[in-house]
Every structure is written in C-alpha cells, then in structure tokens.
Design a protein around this nucleic acid. Structure first.
Length: 426
RNA sequence: GGAGAGGUGGCUGAGUGGCCGAAAGCGGCGGUCUUGAAAACCGUUGAGGGUUUAUCCCCUCCCAGGGUUCGAAUCCCUGCCUCUCCGCCA
C-alpha cells in the first residue's frame, strides 16, 4: 500500500509515477472521493463528539441525583444521525481502501523503463559459460538416465506439473538446500526460520498476493480462508505483522526453506517440459526487515548473498535489473539472477531479489521504534530466493554433466553427498 | 473429540455500565544524588487518524465482527486464539 499522505500532498507526482507502470490513475476520481471522505469524516466526528459530551453530562447529572429526562429528550435522534453518517463514512473508506490496495508500489528511480522482460537491463555476468565437446542433454534426459526424475509417476499421483525425485537426484536437491541454508546461516548472518506452509488471508494481504492475485494461489480451506504458500516470503515476512520491533532487534535477517505452491494459472503452454515451472517446488528464501535508511544497501547485500551461492557452486549467471514493466506489484526494485542452462542454451531466472520499501510494511503494520524519536516507524522489507532449489538442481545437472551422462558433484556439495564426487549412471 | 478458564498498553496485571485510554508493578526515557556506575528518590512513558502553520482541540482503538444503551474494556450474540484437565495421536 502506498502512503495516503503522498496522495494528498503530491498527487501529480504519484500519477506520473504510476504511469511508469502503464497505469492510468484517475486523479479526479480520487480527489472526489478524498473530498467526500474529508467532509463526511469531519461531520461524523463532530456528531460523535456531541454524543460523547451529552452522554457525559447525563452521567454527571445522574450522579448528582438530578432528573435526566430533559437531557435524554435532547439526544433524541442523534443516534440515528450518527448511524447514517458512520455508514456513509464506512462506505467511502471502503471505496478508498479498495482503490489504494489495488495500486502497485512506486518504482525506484533507478528502475529502467520498459515493457516486458526483453527490456530488462543486464548488470553483470559471472562465470564461464561451459563449452561441451558433445551434444548436451537437458535435465529431463539426465534425470531419466539416472532414474531419478519421474514426471509420469507424479502425474499419476496427482496431476501435471509435479515431479517425483528418487535416489541420488533427490539427495542432490536436499544437499543443495542444506548447503544454501548453512551458508546463509553461518556466513551471511541469517537466522534459520521454520514456518507454516498454510497461511491465512491476512498474511497474503500483508505481502501483497491478495486481494489481486488470488488465482495464482492454491486455496485449501474456505472456512477459515487458508492457502498454500506461494513462497516463504509470505509466512516469514508476516512474522513482523502488527509488531513494533525494538531497535536492538533490528535489522532482522531470516532464512527459511519451504516448498512453494503456485497454481501457475495463465502459464499453460509455458515451460511445459521439465522442472522449470512446477506447481510445487523447493526454495530457500532470504527475508530482511530493516530500518528505512538501510534498505537500499540491504538490497544489494541480499542479492550478493544469493549470488554467493551460485559462485560457490561455480554456476555461470548474470544479474539483471528488471524494467518497469517486469517489476512485481509490491516491489520498488528487483534484481533477477539468471543461471546458465546448457539444456536450454540460455540464462533462466533462479532468484528474484526484491526491495519493497514500506509498501508491505504499511499493509502489515510492521514497525520499529526509532530511539531518536521514540516513535514507531514503518520498517522496510526485502526478500530474495537464495536460491530456488529445483532450478538449482537443474542447473547443476546440466552444467556438470559429462558425455556419458555422469554428473560431477560440485565441491561444496560433496560433504552433503556422503563424500561422493560424481553421480554415475548405473 | 469432551469439560473448564481466559484474551486489557513493551511486559505482568487490576478494572463487571458514566468519575476509564485504563490502577499498580516491571521495563524504557529524563532528572536528582555520585569521580563514574549501581541503589534510592522525583518526573515521564500506548497506537492510529482528523483538523491545524503550529500549539490546541477532536475522533477511534481494551482479540475480531455484530448488537443493546443517552453512554460499553465492562452486558448480549458470533467467530478466532490461548491455557488447564480428559481422550486420541507423531
């Protein structure tokens, strides 16, 4: 949610900024609503004040043993007036709320204008794209060769866009997760966090998935409304919902490994082969809750933490700054990390690191107490994949493959694989 | 699943219709004292919003949502959550 104060003081600026999102914000509609809100709110509060004063005098008169009937006669009808005013106010506020919560975050000035992913800006590249002296296999063929990746059996168990992993391939994914967690905990200073995988609507509202993106979610219960998490961002960031955090506890850095569930509505026909786009996948997520002045630097650092995983795995990747048209609803600025996939002969997203400023915090009512002012202030939130484990598994398999289909195990993963150095095709 | 007890400020906890945004204690902040610190003492200390240049003033909030009433933390209804005991279970 955007700062309502900004709308009142710098409406043209907001309008111009939303235009970068290809959003035509109707300022007249807003101004109209806002003027009505102001008038009705003032009127309502005046009536409330009058009611309070009169009620108080009735109380005092009664205490003195006076006859209160004349006073009671005076308040005749006031309750009805107030009821009308209050419901009118509630209606206007509801409309205002609906308008505001549908608006995306304003983009950071450094975000380039553009229409879609083709206009994203490459910031850097790391690593050598491997040259193979043989025809490379993609992870689907490699997985089949190792009898470790079975899409048919998954489809039988549930439906399309799921996978069953077996044997060393399953273990390799687990090794990746353990390695990522240990690195973020021991080297990057994150606190391991275990959270529920089913969340309520308030939590999804807080991070911005609801009310706009309900169709992307798996709903598992109607009463109460509960959903499978699309990312650990939701439960982990909601740790601080409705909290006022002590200065001493800031900044908060949490890392969590969870499965993620996405309905992928509207993605039919995209990435139908393999592990790239599934309804369920494993991800290690980094979340930071920081002071306003620290968030930009935190964003760079957090992205660096995700990059460090790729570097330790020696996987070639590039860092991309998303353009205005590709930046997510809640984000003010997002870096994507794209790993090289030999099976596709291109870079594919493996991590998305976003900075939300106070956009989520305002929805979450997540604040910290600034010791300088003694007052609560909205925190800034950030998150990023560190990394998507399923896609990392794909990247390792494809980049580390040998001609006969064997897969070398990256050095850093070998301790997690019982000392194995290579996965042999049996 | 059955029975009972509860949800009040940063925390503990009093408050059963008006004098309550709310006692007391703890914690925090400021001060006195002290070379400094501790202790002691004094003062101060919830959040959100409206109006305003600002002060002032006003409104809302005692788990959430409804209701009763001139007036609700307090009474009624619904929901959610927590705790205790029993049963069951990993």
């Amino acid at each position: 949610m955007l700062d309502p104060h900004l709308f009142r003081t710098e409406l043209e600026f907001v309008q111009a900024q939303l235009k970068r999102r290809a959003l035509d914000f109707d300022a007249n509609f807003y101004t109209d609503l806002e003027n009505r809100r102001k008038a009705v709110q003032v009127k309502t509060q005046e009536l409330q004040n009058e009611r309070n004063l009169r009620s108080k005098s009735i109380g005092q008169a009664k205490a003195k043993g006076e006859d209160v009937q004349p006073l009671l006669d005076q308040v005749q009808g006031l309750g009805e007036q107030l009821k009308v005013a209050e419901s009118e106010l509630a209606e206007i506020q509801g409309k205002m709320q609906a308008l505001m919560e549908g608006l995306p975050n304003l983009l950071d000035p450094s975000v380039p204008d553009g229409k879609d992913e083709d206009d994203n800006v490459e910031i850097s590249r790391w690593g050598e794209v491997p040259e193979f002296a043989f025809e490379v296999k993609d992870h689907v063929d490699l997985g089949a060769l190792h009898q470790g990746m079975d899409f048919e059996v998954a489809a039988k168990i549930t439906s399309a866009r799921f996978v069953a992993l077996k044997g060393n391939i399953a273990r390799l994914q687990r090794a990746l997760v353990q390695f990522m967690l240990d690195t973020h905990i021991d080297q990057h200073g994150y606190a391991e966090t275990y959270v529920p995988y089913i969340v309520n609507a308030d939590s999804l509202y807080g991070t911005g998935q609801l009310p706009k993106f309900a169709e992307d979610l798996f709903k598992v219960s109607v009463d109460p409304d509960l959903y499978l998490i699309p990312t650990a961002e939701v439960p982990v960031t909601n740790v601080v919902r409705n909290e006022i955090i002590d200065n001493a506890d800031m900044p908060i850095k949490m890392v969590s490994h969870t499965p993620c569930f996405r309905s992928e509505a509207g993605a039919y026909g995209k990435d139908v082969r393999g592990l790239i786009r599934q309804h369920q996948f494993e991800k290690v997520e980094l979340v930071q809750i920081v002071r306003a002045g620290e968030s930009e630097q935190a964003h760079e650092e957090l992205t660096g933490h995700a990059e460090n995983i790729l570097q330790k795995l020696n996987l070639p990747y590039r860092k991309v700054l998303l353009c205005s048209g590709d930046t997510g609803f809640s984000s003010t600025k997002t870096y994507d990390l794209e790993v090289w996939l030999p099976g596709q002969d291109k870079y594919r997203e493996i991590s998305s690191c976003s900075h939300f400023k106070d956009f989520q915090a305002r929805r979450l009512k997540a604040r910290w107490r600034n010791p300088e002012t003694g007052k609560p202030e909205l925190v800034h939130t950030l998150n990023g994949s560190g990394l998507a484990a399923g896609r990392t598994l794909v990247a390792v398999m494809e980049n580390y493959q040998l001609e006969n289909g064997d897969i070398n195990i990256p050095d850093v993963l070998q301790p997690y694989m019982g000392g194995m150095t290579v996965l042999k095709v049996s």
